[in-house]
């Protein structure tokens, strides 16, 4: 309690707004926020399975077992094997294939997003900070490429270059860097006119140092949110392109390719299509939820509201 015998001073007011919250409070709040907790767990699980596929998968990914073909989810095969999500037309365990498929789908998405972010953010920050001709050229390119139908261009380029992991990542880089560039340029424009950058300039900082040490850390939050969303977008695009036969090529297996393969058996074995699609759905959903959450908590007012609702903070006051 504040001593009421003294007049209120401005410092009292400030103290009341600056209750320190540690990371444990954030952890507790996440546990209370079921939706974010779900999204975070799903993404963490996905990362664990992607990295540890060789140890965690219950079966061999290419383990043909012609006696156990087309078993529905939850079946026990003739050899006593348990198939959580059923088997495909060659008797391979669907769950195992999903885990290995995640490797390709997730790494295409993450790699594509990382490269686009690096190129886009660099171009955008330079354009926004330096302005002039550089900005004109970059923004022309960005506006032009953004108004093209990206899936169609991707299809055409992959038709020319041929599919496969590397080309897919390359195409994603070429067709998605603009999204980052546009945002980074806007942020850099704002930052260039801000007091902290003006202060750095007046102290004689070089422009490279200003961009890296002063602007970049301050614009990181919105870029990370966009990055999360872009991973989801790229995983969806990868699925579409692979489904059409222009993305990842067999024997690599991605979720999109698995749906494409399962399509032939859709009348008899729905699970071959349903589960890979659900895997993509939940991945994209979790990434979207995490991005929304991250956007919310980087805003101080919303972070306060989010934390206050879920911690003991409110009660203690």
């Amino acid at each position: 309690m504040v001593d009421l015998s003294k007049p209120l001073s401005p410092t009292d007011v400030d103290e009341s707004r600056q209750v320190q919250l540690g990371w444990t409070d954030y952890m507790r709040a996440i546990l209370q926020d079921y939706i974010t907790f779900f999204a975070l767990s799903f993404v963490l699980l996905l990362i664990v399975f992607t990295l540890g596929a060789d140890f965690l998968a219950p079966h061999e990914p290419t383990g043909l077992n012609l006696r156990d073909r087309m078993l529905p989810p939850g079946s026990i095969g003739r050899g006593g094997d348990f198939y959580l999500l059923g088997t495909d037309e060659l008797g391979r365990d669907l769950f195992t294939r999903l885990i290995y498929g995640a490797r390709v789908s997730v790494s295409v998405g993450v790699l594509g997003a990382v490269l686009s972010a690096i190129v886009g953010v660099t171009a955008g920050l330079m354009a926004g900070y330096h302005g002039g001709l550089l900005e004109d050229i970059v923004m022309r390119l960005v506006d032009g490429m953004l108004s093209l139908p990206s899936l169609l261009v991707a299809l055409f380029v992959l038709f020319i270059l041929g599919g496969g992991f590397g080309n897919l990542v390359l195409v994603f880089l070429v067709l998605h860097w603009m999204v980052f560039a546009r945002m980074a340029r806007g942020l850099a424009l704002d930052a260039r006119n801000s007091a902290y950058v003006q202060a750095a300039v007046s102290q004689g900082c070089k422009s490279g140092r200003i961009i890296l040490r002063h602007i970049l850390p301050n614009v990181m939050a919105p870029i990370l949110v966009l990055f999360t969303l872009e991973i989801a977008v790229l995983i969806l695009s990868e699925a579409s392109l692979s489904f059409l036969g222009f993305g990842v090529q067999p024997p690599d297996a991605s979720w999109g390719l698995m749906i494409s393969g399962g399509r032939e058996h859709i009348r008899s074995a729905w699970w071959l299509v349903a589960f890979p699609g659900l895997a993509i759905f939940f991945t994209a959903l979790s990434l979207n939820l995490l991005a929304n959450w991250a956007r919310a908590i980087t805003d101080p007012v919303q972070r306060w509201r989010w934390l206050a609702k879920r911690t003991k903070f409110r009660k203690s006051k």
Partner: peptide, 22 residues
């Protein structure tokens, strides 16, 4: 709306075919 944004279009189409047609 989150579901609509996260779903794979062609997969949704296939599922609709399974449900409403097959």
């Amino acid at each position: 709306s989150l579901a609509g944004v996260s779903v794979v279009q062609f997969w949704l189409g296939l599922m609709l075919i399974v449900l409403f047609s097959v």
